[in-house]
Computed example of a mutant assay.
Amino acid sequence: MKKIIAAALLCGASLAQAAPTAPAHRCSAEAVKQATSLLTFHFGPDERMEIDTDVKVLAPIRNPANKKQSFDVLEVWGTIYKGQYRMHLIYAQLGGSCVLMGQEILEHASL
């Protein structure tokens, strides 16, 4: 029985390592910089501010001014002391450019 459990754990570990990771969005680095600016704008400079460098690509949204166009949405998390903030950075889909079209910030809290 112990051998079966050990084999299952080894298979699971190797599958987790073999799982392909999604390629980074071309604007990921720009989104992290913009998230830092967004938190600083709302709360001022604070040495306790941290921005997570893991950028999650969310489903694109339609451009309200032109339904034929879509915007890319990148999610970045940040913290200041005990506060957690989820930020969505919205970029135009323009080839190699990172044109910021919108941004939103929401404190992750339960009231």
Rank of each mutant, 00 (worst) to 15 (best):
R62M: 09
C27W: 05
A109P: 00
G102W: 02
I4Y: 04
D46A: 09
I5M: 12
G102F: 02
N66K: 13
K33N: 07
E30V: 14
G44M: 11
P23I: 05
I105C: 00
A59G: 10
I61K: 07
L38H: 05
Y91I: 02
A24Y: 03
K56D: 08
D52V: 01
A13Q: 01
A109D: 09
Y81T: 10
K2A: 15
L9V: 15
G12M: 14
P23L: 12
M1P: 09
L9H: 05
G102Y: 03
G95L: 03
L111C: 04
C27V: 09
L58A: 11
P60K: 03
K33Q: 10
A22Y: 14
E104C: 03
V73N: 01
H25S: 04
R62H: 09
K33F: 00
F71L: 08
Q69A: 13
Y91S: 01
A19E: 08
R62P: 01
M101T: 06
T21N: 14
G12C: 14
M49T: 15
R26Q: 11
I5G: 04
Y81L: 07
R86C: 04
L94S: 13
L39F: 07
K67F: 12
L111Y: 12
F41R: 12
I4E: 07
V76S: 04
E47P: 07
P20N: 08
T40Q: 15
V73T: 01
E104Y: 01
F43C: 00
T40I: 12
Q84Y: 08
V55E: 00
V76Y: 01
F43N: 10
A109H: 15
Q84G: 06
L74A: 03
A92C: 05
K82N: 07
D52S: 08
F41T: 08
H108V: 14
D52Y: 00
